[in-house]
Design a protein around this nucleic acid. Structure first.
Lengths: 142, 142
DNA sequence: CACTGATGTAATAATTGACATTACAATAAA
DNA sequence: TTTATTGTAATGTCAATTATTACATCAGTG
């Protein structure tokens, strides 16, 4: 089991937009050839990034730009933006524990809090890295 | 996307074994009726818990017991035991970023470390809760 | 104003993984 | 030998992910 690659693709998209913004019109086709997936995938994810006010996409004329300040959003924002989780819940849980059984009746009460804490630890760490940091690391490498 | 319910089922199984150990022979069928899934699912997960030395399962005669000290294993051990993740990697990554593109070529270098750190934060939190704690919380509730 | 190159989105298919279920050989005690 | 149970293979079903085709919509340009 894995978190969908929509997340890594979203990161890749944003980096492409920034890196090539001077020299190219960064279209879904252009990005798709760097990510190596179908342009429609890129358009869908760009659509979500747009809904969250991270990018602006030029309909008709084409091309995308980042409109949010680079230090004001993090990996967590990107992660949440592309709906990486259903119901914002990381851990799946078997559907119908038997309520006639003392364990089945109370398993959620006992376990849920620990799972939530663990998910929060993940989110907290994701929130530590701003997009600015990512871009700086990329630029240093280039 | 969610982490498989195998994890929550494994926790449920272990709690059943402990709670009913005095009064019943805790078979896969017995556990299955509390978890509300097919007994074969229980047997498979019990098999993994056995491989990791957490339980012992009596073949032929039937029934499972916990053989590992309750304070010596944590939610993380259970999580890893049931192969909740493929390749021990939480985050999926799109398969073939274009190596001709500067972004595609370096995206892994830039991003991987942050994703690993986030996964580690999750694991660290899971490792904080021992099975002993879980059982105590359950017993208090009963 | 028609043309061109994009985006937005729906529809469909292919692939994969999760979970359920049936079946049965192997086992261990009574 | 009988009985209850485990271990495991085989099969089926369902949902989610990703890929792909198609096309209406849009916004500049000649």
């Amino acid at each position: 089991m894995k978190i969908s690659s929509r997340f890594s693709i979203a990161i890749h998209i944003l980096m492409c937009i920034d890196v090539f913004k001077q020299d190219y019109k960064v279209t879904s086709e252009f990005i798709a050839s760097s990510v190596n997936v179908n342009p429609v995938i890129i358009r869908n994810i760009l659509g979500q990034l747009k809904e969250d006010g991270i990018v602006e996409v030029a309909r008709g004329t084409g091309g995308a730009i980042i409109i949010k300040d680079y230090s004001s959003f993090t990996l967590l924002d990107i992660f949440n933006c592309v709906d990486s989780l259903e119901n914002n819940t990381l851990f799946g849980f078997h559907g119908n524990p038997n309520p006639e059984c003392p364990v089945g009746k109370n398993i959620h009460f006992v376990v849920d809090g620990y799972l939530e804490d663990s998910q929060k630890a993940l989110e907290k760490q994701l929130a530590k890295t701003t997009f600015k940091e990512l871009i700086e690391k990329m630029n240093k490498k280039l």
